[in-house]
């Protein structure tokens, strides 16, 4: 999802995630009317369907990397052993297993975003929503995160990525939607891969 700053990209993402409600219209994800779910329904929907990745990571500073990654599973009531196994597998898969006892404040931006990705994948959600995942990263870290996102996508993970960076969109999107002033300006298949 492309668009300049203030075009409504993040608002749309939040509405898809059930974090925000539309003033008018409906939000339907995989046949589910997200705008009608209510607080408890939205929470359940997010646990089962959505994994979120934020521009500024939104990791909890007072929890270790492993505890951050475990959170979605713990909130969903996943059995302890299964949750730990899954977390370890993800941390290893994303190359950050050595940081599992570390607090996020000690990690670089790229490493933090990997932790955030691991956390988003924890409950095996069918949809990952990523809001400017490289916006707060330096070029090298951003490149590493983009590669990771692309790999995930290639393995079958659906990802809705919001960015104002056309280069990023061009590098990984299979479909691009462009918003301008809160309206759909373009919806097309992509783009060069």
């Amino acid at each position: 999802m492309l668009g300049p700053s203030g075009s409504g990209k993040s608002t749309l993402l939040n509405m898809i995630a059930g974090l925000d409600e539309p003033d008018e219209g409906t939000v339907t994800v995989d046949g589910v009317r997200v705008d009608r779910l209510g607080e408890a329904g939205s929470a359940k929907y997010r646990r089962a369907t959505i994994g979120m990745v934020f521009q500024f990571f939104n990791l909890l500073d007072d929890l270790t990397v492993q505890d951050n990654v475990l959170l979605p599973a713990q909130l969903a009531g996943m059995p302890r052993a299964e949750a730990h196994e899954r977390a370890f597998e993800l941390l290893a898969d994303l190359g950050i297993e050595q940081y599992r006892g570390t607090f996020p404040g000690r990690l670089s931006g790229g490493e933090r975003q990997r932790v955030a990705l691991a956390r988003a994948l924890m409950n095996r959600p069918p949809l990952i929503l990523a809001d400017e995942p490289t916006g707060a990263l330096d070029r090298a870290s951003a490149g590493s995160v983009v590669r990771l996102i692309r790999e995930l996508n290639e393995r079958g993970q659906t990802i809705l990525l919001v960015t104002h960076d056309t280069g990023l969109a061009a590098s990984c999107a299979t479909r691009t939607i462009e918003l301008v002033d809160g309206r759909l300006a373009r919806d097309g298949a992509a783009v060069t891969r």
């Binding site: 607080e39 929470a43 939104n58 969903a76 956390r119």
Partner: peptide
């Protein structure tokens, strides 16, 4: 409140 927002985004229900 920000941490609370994160937790809710990760699926923390009102009861939780």
């Amino acid at each position: 409140v920000h941490d609370l927002g994160v937790l809710k985004a990760l699926g923390m229900s009102p009861r939780q």
